[in-house]
Deep mutational scan, measured.
Amino acid sequence: QTTIQVRVPYRVVGLVVGPKGATIKRIQQRTHTYIVTPGRDKEPVFAVTGMPENVDRAREEIEAHITL
């Protein structure tokens, strides 16, 4: 297991999390990772935990939302 920090712009935190957390839950299920969402007043950084290859996939999925 490994944990990485995925930093995103403030404006996309809501996009990545999705309505009621649906998007981030879907990313967690698809990539078999555990993702901690940043709090409102915190740095916009997601903490992604899982097997290294799964963590990389989750990071790619999160980063895909940044380019939307």
Rank of each mutant, 00 (worst) to 15 (best):
V45W: 04
Y34P: 04
T33E: 05
E53Q: 11
G39F: 06
K42Y: 01
H32V: 06
A22V: 05
Y10M: 15
P19F: 08
R57G: 05
I24T: 08
K42E: 15
P19K: 14
A22F: 08
D41T: 10
R40Y: 11
L68N: 14
Q28S: 10
R40S: 11
V8N: 08
V36N: 12
I27H: 01
G21M: 09
T2E: 09
K20E: 09
Y10C: 12
T2M: 12
T23P: 01
T49E: 06
L68A: 14
V45I: 14
V13F: 00
T67C: 14
R30P: 01
V13S: 04
I4Y: 05
I24M: 03
K25S: 07
E60G: 09
V13A: 08
L15H: 12
M51I: 10
G39Q: 14
H32M: 09
R11V: 09
V36G: 03
V8H: 04
R59P: 06
Y34H: 15
R26I: 00
R11G: 15
G18C: 05
V13C: 00
I62W: 02
V12H: 14
V12T: 15
Q5P: 07
L68G: 15
F46C: 13
Q5M: 13
E43I: 03
I27N: 01
E63P: 02
H32W: 05
H65F: 15
P44M: 00
E63M: 15
G39P: 11
N54M: 09
P38V: 06
R7I: 05
K20S: 09
T49M: 05
Q28P: 06
T23L: 01
R40F: 11
R7K: 10
V55F: 02
G50Y: 00
R57L: 07
Q1M: 14
E61M: 15
A22E: 12
H65R: 09
R59S: 06
P9S: 06
I62D: 06
E53H: 08
V55P: 00
Y34Q: 15
P44L: 05
Q28R: 00
N54Y: 02
H32K: 14
V48C: 01
L15C: 11
L68T: 15
T67S: 13
R59N: 00
V55N: 00
E61V: 01
A64P: 07
I35C: 00
R7C: 03
A22I: 07
G50P: 10
N54V: 04
V17I: 14
V8G: 05
T3C: 02
G21K: 02
G21F: 05
V48F: 00
P9L: 00
I24E: 03
Q1E: 14
V17N: 08
R26E: 12
I35N: 06
K25Y: 05
V48H: 01
T23K: 06
D56T: 12
A58C: 08
Q1R: 06
